[in-house]
Design a protein around this nucleic acid. Structure first.
Length: 832
DNA sequence: TTTAAGCCCATTTTT
DNA sequence: TGGGCTTAAA
């Protein structure tokens, strides 16, 4: 409630004036640029050190501006300096600037860096934050226009799923057949597009719950309203609806915001776009549109969660007369790394087209290294060796990162580092506020703060166990519905009646009495003390103290940490809001450790040395991205590769393996097409040593020969001078057809493609054809009976000779002479 | 209420 | 293959 702006004057009092180092009055528009151009003697120091493009992006304050900022070109610097510039020129008060980011981390960083430039004035920037945090702020001011009270609760995904499950059951639908999780995702998708129940496409509405999708969505929204709650999507959708229905509300914001800045514009979804467009119709004065969007279309990697690259691509159409500024001078990476990344990304269509360059020219800089390994174990071992080697040369582990496409790849590296005794940290992963004990504790607090929070109530009413079974909870639920009151109140009523058996009645009475007492204490007890009391008196801490499992002590520790962190907030409410919006917890930076994370979570980061393992078809690009996204899916994968490459400052190592175990089955893999899209001049194929990394042995790469087919084979040198290098794109399909055309001949070895029903992406039972560049290149033949029988002697590329001991469809269990019993797909073995 | 056995699933993730 | 989750049984 602390930052609830209603107690503040809408426009700022002069006391909030920013420092104004420039004593000259601020000229506007062209005049400003003209003055800058003639090198005004009093150029403030924050401008020094900017390159011309950056400076232009900072100083073009009036009118719409799109800054296309390539990786490592100083994007954040431009954004923060621009704000500092606006402030110190006296063009706006801090509270008249709307600055939006996607993540809390980005917002925090921005705030910090502006602080360095302008000092205290940052504190007066209440409208710097994530889309969602700003959305909440707006919604709280006008909650009643969305049918909510201003103290509404924000539900997390967990709550949402439980709520939807209840609704599905209430409709008399089978919650197995219609999973709540799936419907939650559908709702999320609709809200990403800004669609309410009435606006969703008929097809979507029919696709769920026997055609009841729309009704269910409606029921969900109604339920949220009675609960006085919002989901994440609503934090933007409600404001959009309010802006449209109440122009005077929007008008106020138009008057208020003189400058709008948006970070990572390529990641905006349709709802965010609509929200922004409404606000950006006017900034400060009639006809004025001071919107500055910063982004990089080449780093758009969140299409799968609703981001529309199109938003950035059509910026100049949305805002006619927009100035487009390209930042292409890279300050991060070596020329080789940039060359490799640029060449790769050039394979994408539908992009603005930027070419990163650098002045850096150090002959010491090595090329990008491509390595082959036999399997993922060897891959991890080799990466580990390189890391130890670097460590011996006094490199910090903190400066190294392993970026994987999918998190299952992490395990092998972790295992390896454990045996080597190398420190590592996994970035991302399950977060503090998502832990069970934290959520439970938060549920207690939520009920205390907002008695109508039924979802929170239901979560903890029987935790710790109080003998309140399903039946009793159902009764509370039904009573609450019947009386139209929150469950807490219904519980109180029931405890006084004799509708329940003595045991649950007593339990309910105690719970109700507890909450009543805590709620009373809320106003006159420091909230962190109260929180501790709640957890003690409810028996929640005891529950974990009595728990003998290995995690219990850690959970108690987390609860302590939770209480400790509450001190920083002035009220229970503001703490709850913080947790709802800021789900991240900080990692231990003190420890020197190798960073392991997914490519997605690496966006925005940089490391001296980067390892990119798993560059194989099916994994990267991921088969599922190709199947579901066609050509645009492939392009997004390529952008992901680009993001990966551009994280590296000096050293970059790419890896691919010939064999990988997927879902317990060994699959033979072929090098990623992205490897072939790297330019020869900047890449070095590292010696594979003893390992046989080639895609040889008579198999054929269905995408046509690749220059990586024979890495490690002695008949070829380790260079690019392999025959496959000149492979034309057209040959790819041709070669593929040839390959598949001959598949019925037993002499031709088959690779695992198409026939697998457990391979990448293919669904069980219903095997899809494989799609590359959006075209179907091969149909599955899963129905084909296995050409082997039990007892057959076969040869496997990885495991050698063995006898088949069992056959399950196309899955063979084979007793190998050397490797022991393994399960493999029949496509990977040959009759001997 | 707790434990064991079957069952389904298997990119990426922020708020 | 292996983890998370639901169901069935004690």
């Amino acid at each position: 409630m602390s930052d609830f702006p209603d107690d503040m004057p809408f426009f700022d009092e002069p006391g909030a004036m920013p420092p104004r180092p420039a004593s000259t009055p601020a000229p506007s528009g062209i005049a400003a640029r003209a003055m800058a151009a003639r090198q005004a003697p009093a150029a403030p120091d924050y401008l020094t050190g900017l390159n011309p493009e950056q400076r232009l992006a900072v100083e073009t304050t009036e009118g719409p501006v799109l800054v296309l900022a390539g990786a490592g070109t100083g994007k954040t610097r431009v954004l923060t300096t621009r704000i500092a510039h606006i402030l110190s020129q006296g063009r706006a008060y801090p509270s008249q600037i709307l600055a939006v980011t996607f993540t809390n981390k980005a917002a925090r960083e921005m705030k910090q860096r502006i602080g360095h430039l302008v000092g205290e004035a940052v504190e007066g920037m209440p409208w710097l934050g994530t889309f969602h945090s700003i959305g909440v702020k707006m919604l709280r001011r006008n909650a009643e226009l969305a049918g909510l009270r201003s103290d509404f609760t924000i539900l997390d995904t967990d709550d949402v799923i439980r709520l939807i499950k209840q609704l599905i059951q209430a409709e008399g639908l089978d919650d197995k057949r219609w999973p709540a999780r799936q419907f939650a995702m559908m709702i999320d998708g609709w809200k990403n597009k800004g669609l309410g129940p009435a606006e969703i496409p008929e097809g979507d509405a029919r696709a769920f719950a026997n055609g009841k999708g729309r009704e269910l969505y409606k029921a969900y929204q109604d339920r949220l309203q009675t609960l006085n709650a919002c989901d994440f999507g609503d934090l933007l959708c409600h404001p959009i609806r309010i802006f449209r229905a109440y122009p005077d509300v929007l008008k106020e914001y138009h008057k208020r915001f003189k400058y709008i800045l948006v970070d990572e514009y390529q990641d905006t979804n349709t709802a965010q776009y609509m929200w922004l467009r409404l606000l950006a119709q006017e900034t400060g004065a009639p006809g004025q549109k001071n919107v500055c969007c910063v982004g990089d279309d080449d780093q758009s990697i969140y299409g799968w969660r609703g981001a529309e690259v199109d938003n950035i691509l059509r910026f100049d159409k949305d805002f006619p007369g927009a100035v487009v500024i390209r930042l292409e001078r890279n300050y991060r990476s070596t020329a080789h790394i940039l060359g490799a990344a640029s060449h790769l990304i050039a394979h994408n269509e539908g992009r603005f087209g930027k070419t990163l360059f650098t002045d850096r020219n150090d002959p010491e800089d090595g090329k990008v290294n491509v390595h082959a390994a036999w399997d993922s174990e060897e891959e991890a071992r080799a990466v580990g060796e390189t890391i130890e080697q670097l460590q011996r040369q006094k490199h910090n582990l903190n400066d190294m990162a392993i970026l994987v496409r999918a998190s299952f790849q992490m395990r092998e590296f972790e295992d390896r580092f454990v045996t080597l005794g190398v420190n590592y940290r996994v970035v991302g992963g399950p977060r503090f506020y998502e832990r069970q004990e934290i959520r439970d504790a938060m549920a207690y607090f939520r009920v205390v703060a907002q008695g109508a929070d039924d979802l929170a109530f239901e979560r903890i009413v029987n935790i710790p166990k109080r003998g309140l079974g399903e039946a009793a909870i159902r009764q509370v639920h039904d009573t609450a519905r019947a009386l139209g009151v929150p469950m807490l109140e219904a519980a109180r009523n029931l405890a006084e009646s004799d509708e329940l058996k003595p045991k649950p009645r007593a339990a309910l009475r105690e719970v109700a009495a507890n909450f009543e007492r805590w709620q009373k204490a809320l106003d006159n007890t420091p909230h962190n003390e109260l929180a501790e009391t709640i957890l003690e008196e409810s028996g929640y801490t005891d529950m974990w103290k009595n728990d003998r499992s290995a995690e219990a002590p850690g959970r108690l520790e987390n609860l302590k940490e939770l209480i400790r962190s509450m001190e920083e907030y002035e009220s229970l409410r503001s703490f709850l809001e913080h947790v709802a919006l800021v789900m991240d917890a900080d990692k231990n930076e003190d420890l020197d450790a190798v960073n392991i994370m997914t490519l997605h979570s690496a966006k925005g980061l940089e490391f001296e040395t980067v390892f990119l393992p798993g560059w194989e078809e099916g994994l990267f690009p991921h088969q599922r991205a190709l199947d579901e996204g066609g050509r645009s899916g492939l392009e997004e994968e390529r952008r992901l590769a680009y993001v990966g490459l551009t994280r590296a400052k000096k050293n970059l190592h790419l890896w691919f393996v010939s064999n990988r175990r997927i879902h317990g089955l060994w699959q033979s893999t072929i090098p990623s097409r992205f490897l072939d899209e790297l330019p020869e001049a900047h890449v070095e194929v590292a010696d594979a040593g003893n390992s046989y990394g080639g895609y040889g042995g008579g198999r054929q790469n269905p995408y046509g020969a690749s220059r990586f087919d024979s890495v490690g084979e002695k008949s070829f040198s380790n260079t690019y001078a392999t025959p496959g290098w000149q492979r034309a794109q057209a040959n790819r399909t041709e070669a593929t057809d040839r390959n598949w055309g001959s598949r019925s001949g037993h002499s031709v070895e088959r690779i695992g493609y198409g026939e697998t029903d457990s391979g990448f992406g293919a669904g069980r039972g219903s095997v899809k054809g494989r799609t590359i560049d959006g075209e179907l290149i091969a149909k599955s033949v899963a129905s084909e009976p296995s050409r082997f029988s039990v007892g057959d002697r076969v040869f496997h590329q990885k495991f050698g000779n063995g006898n088949i001991s069992a056959i399950d469809g196309n899955k063979l269990t084979i007793d190998f002479d050397k490797a022991g019993q393994k399960k493999v797909l029949d496509g990977f073995v040959n009759a001997v």
